[in-house]
Nucleic acid binder design. Structure first.
Lengths: 379, 379
DNA sequence: TTGAAAGCGGTACCAT
DNA sequence: ATGGTACCGCTTTCAA
């Protein structure tokens, strides 16, 4: 066997390019380019000769970046997360959504670029149309440098500068946040009405003393009870929607929302929720029901109840949101939302931007799934 | 307020570029470029004036693709999966690994490009040094078009053409497959020795009739018992390693490996494992112990046992591998491997390629974690 | 069928 | 502190 192909350098140690191959074969760059990109534009023999030469020279085909530049297409879409990527993968709900996006991306040969946007202080929200003053470091840099054809926003707070930046780049985006800028295509669920389903179920079972578990209200990592003002100040649309739904159902039967303990776990994790549950589990007037804005949190509450010897479904009721796979195993009452479908639609919206002038706002159906963790209010 | 900034087009409907801004301000492209990339190269006033003009023109900063081309750096690393992306996210082990990679990528402002390589037939493995004949569609296209600075291979079969392609592109890569080409930097664990820990534990408890649960041997989706020949023909290094470890320990105490039922779930999922478990659970000479090559599979076996009223740890023993978070909750005996650390090291290897000539081959420590699912062999 | 020339949008080096 | 100039590697008219 001859000398083994070394990296992708030509004999003089330079990376082989189209030109290198063209010279070797004695044709023009165009022809070589065509050999790869438009096989029908040249005769089969020549094409073979070109590939031969390419192989010999260690040329592995047109450079991806250069091609992207010239074509004006990156061949990838960006997934923008607020959370550290690390956390994004921790919730089965996120994973379900991601899978949906991935499916359609895959099908169209498009890559998925994960873009972390660690929660950081960012300036006041005003002046949304003006591109963010450049020169900042994170997270603007990430958005600006992303080689993508569009962005899928996932849990990006209302008013986040990334949106202005993306718009300024002239790239399409899609959000899953109901309360977001109406000019951004949206796919999601009716958060408020869906949350209401869970709360109505609880109310129907006779519960009047309820607590609510959320991931975070004021700032990431801050756990404990949150005041009504703090709740309303949150910049997370989903949170607002779900709390609103709970509130609707509870106020309808005369429960004062201020009497409802809303507790933040600090982050969206089972163990954090289990700890934070102490805020309402270990007090005198323990609630008879707990509404968690996500299943992962609900599972944590379940853990906490178990630790305290409470029989869930009898001594206390717990309802979640999402219907992640674990929910079934835990017999958790919850609200099912089609996370995979949400992701697929989001992906499609990005890959095949609809013709119509109207900004798409798609709402997917949800459904209450009653299992074993909810039961009649004690006494 | 004035007309709102429309996308990123200038007054004549063209995308604004460096030049546009330069013309507007009356400076050269270089200066504008410096305003963004090297703030210290020009005076503050001018910089402000440039940003002003940029804002006015709807210019959102240097184009990512162009910058990548010129700089010769993509600012992202590719994550190559064999599985459909969809499955990749389903296993907490993968997620853990991914988080590790993500962490270091994040820290260095590097993006993560997910590249799906759906299992498809690909030609014979021979001739690994020759770049794959171009012109094919998937999955070569994905690798060739990926705008990245390096690749992290994750569960890519030995001999997969992607490797030759990456080498031909002259990009660095790292694998987690022990049996892979020794010229590819590697980080992982001693699969064989680690699996042996689990099997030895089982043997020590007196078990001699054992079954093994794997995800897939011959082809994805094919479930059921696998012959020894099929096992040895698998192109998945991890599988081979773990089976080898089990075999070592069992043969050491005189168990004939051919008597060990090795059952494939068809895919790496809890429910698939639960179903496939019927192949050894519902037969006359039911094994007293089950070794699963991954926790997700082990959890499925646990489900299957529960369905049949078997008390795990007494009637039958089950040991997993990985030590995913759920394992603790299920009190599963397993082998712990540092998945996050594995990911971090892989990421680092890619981002800061070591100086040394030697190809890095890093083995991380593992440890047997004995919980409640294993007990003495009955009788 | 093949080739020449003109960019795609920037960055880096070297002068000024 | 600025600007000129070359070039990153490819694709795409358009003409031969």
């Amino acid at each position: 066997m001859g000398g083994r192909a070394v990296g992708a350098k030509d004999s003089r140690g330079r990376r082989a390019t189209l030109q290198t191959v063209a010279d070797e074969v004695g044709v023009s760059r165009t022809t070589v380019s065509n050999a790869y990109g438009r096989p029908d534009q040249l005769n089969k023999d020549l094409r073979e000769r070109i590939f031969d030469a390419a192989r010999r020279l260690g040329y592995s085909g047109p450079d991806a970046t250069a091609r992207s530049l010239r074509r004006g297409r990156a061949g990838a879409i960006g997934l923008l997360f607020t959370e550290t990527l690390s956390y994004a993968f921790a919730d089965p709900y996120s994973v379900g959504f991601l899978r949906g996006v991935a499916e359609v991306a895959e099908a169209s040969g498009t890559g998925l670029l994960l873009i972390p946007m660690p929660p950081r202080a960012y300036g006041p929200a005003g002046d949304k149309d003006a591109p963010v003053p450049p020169g900042n470091d994170d997270p603007e840099t990430a958005v600006r440098n992303a080689v993508v054809d569009g962005f899928c926003l996932y849990c990006v707070p209302v008013g986040h500068p990334a949106k202005a930046l993306i718009r300024a780049r002239g790239l399409p985006m899609v959000t899953t946040d109901e309360r977001d800028d109406p000019s951004i295509p949206y796919v999601g669920i009716d958060e408020r009405a869906s949350a209401r389903l869970a709360a109505e179920h609880i109310v129907r079972l006779g519960h009047r003393r309820v607590a609510v578990m959320v991931d975070q209200v004021v700032a990431p990592g801050t756990s404990g009870p949150a005041t009504v003002e703090e709740q309303l100040a949150s910049d997370c649309g989903d949170l607002q929607g779900r709390l609103g739904g709970y509130r609707d159902a509870l106020e309808e039967v005369g429960v004062d929302w201020r009497s409802v303990r809303v507790v933040a776990a600090g982050r969206n994790s089972r163990s954090a929720a289990a700890s934070a549950a102490a805020h309402f589990l270990d007090v005198a007037d323990r609630p008879t029901a707990v509404l968690a804005i996500g299943d992962v949190l609900a599972l944590g509450v379940l853990d906490a109840c178990e630790q305290r010897g409470l029989v869930v479904g009898r001594d206390i009721s717990v309802a979640g949101f999402d219907d992640v796979p674990e929910a079934e195993r835990a017999r958790l009452t919850t609200v099912r939302q089609p996370m995979g479908e949400k992701g697929r639609i989001a992906g499609r919206l990005l890959l095949e931007p609809p013709e119509e002038q109207k900004v798409p706002r798609i709402k997917l159906p949800t459904e209450l799934v009653v299992r074993a963790t909810t039961g009649p209010a004690p006494h």
